[in-house]
Amino acid sequence: MIFRRIFGIIPLIGCFALAACSKAGSTFLLPAGPIAAAQRAEFIQILGWTLVAIVPVFALVPVLLWRYRYRNRDARYAPDWDRSPLLEVLMWGVPLVIVTVLSVQLYRTTHELDPIKPIASDNPPLRVEAVGLDWKWLFIYPDLGIATINELAFPEKTSVALDLTTDTVMQSFLISALAGQIYTMPGMHTRLHVLADQPGEFEGENTQFNGTGFPQQKFRAIAMTPTAFESWVEEVRSDGQPLTAKHYGVLAQATTGATAQQQLGAKALSGGVLHFSSVDNDLFDEVLHRYMRGTPVPSANQPGAVGYDPQASTGEPNQ
């Protein structure tokens, strides 16, 4: 597509210039996976096509204002001129064509990049369950029997199938360098797939405001070589504590990861990261069904609520 190239070059340079100022791993403008790369390509294409409609405005407005300034008696003045078939066709036609092209493109990419679709890869996918808690993220590796707070490690070139929910108010899960965001909502289950092309560390975050600790709700997404990942799993198994119901009660309070580290007496890993050597396989489902049991759930039993009291909670997971 010669069009795409022409329209693509200038904004592409601009994007790189901008992105160069920021650190890698935090933006889809410096993508680390196929989804983010496709999103950047889409971004640049839209920019290019839309500029077709916008550049004339930028160029012509000053020309018109200067040419038809009041003092310029050489310019033609036609106060009753108010229509021109040719202009009319152009004015409706150009935006219509652009929007049609972009619509076709939109339909195609929306389906292609549907977050629910697994990403093609030679390696078997890795399942991870993510639970949004107030001001931290809990990641459960159901097939490995381990869990972490604020650290999502996975092997490179592997499709990570994320199942997401929240055990408090609504949140939104984003690893910009890898893929777009998806909401997590209480009692609801959303899905997202990410894949990293090579090892690297990327910033992940919650983008939906959920209280005073909101800006601290960040996590590290780390893509590793398969061997590094294996040793990471071993490390979590050996130096983590088990994720018991009591521990979960502490995590579910409205605190940041760093506070939870202190409360649980865990190693002071940077970024409020915690490791858990074992986890109940049903934890994600327990969280998902917390509000689906057909009985009222008082504030004291609602994680993240003002009156939440882990001790008072009945029917806590793992009990």
């Binding site: 409609a53 405005v57 012509l60 407005v61 018109l64 204002l65 038809y68 300034r69 009041y70 310019a75 033609r76 003045y77 036609a78 106060p79 001129w81 021109s84 202009l87 152009l90 004015m91 409706w92 150009v94 935006p95 219509l96 652009i98 929007v99 972009l102 619509s103 939109l106 339909y107 929306t110």
Partner: peptide, 28 residues
């Protein structure tokens, strides 16, 4: 998404119409 983008068409036309209003006018 397509419905949202479609709004750009009438909006664009308005902008062009305003420019055409300046054309052959006497602007202060």
């Amino acid at each position: 998404g397509i419905a949202s983008m479609a709004i750009a068409v009438p909006t664009g036309i308005k902008v062009y119409n305003w420019m055409a209003t300046i054309f052959r006018g006497r602007v202060r």
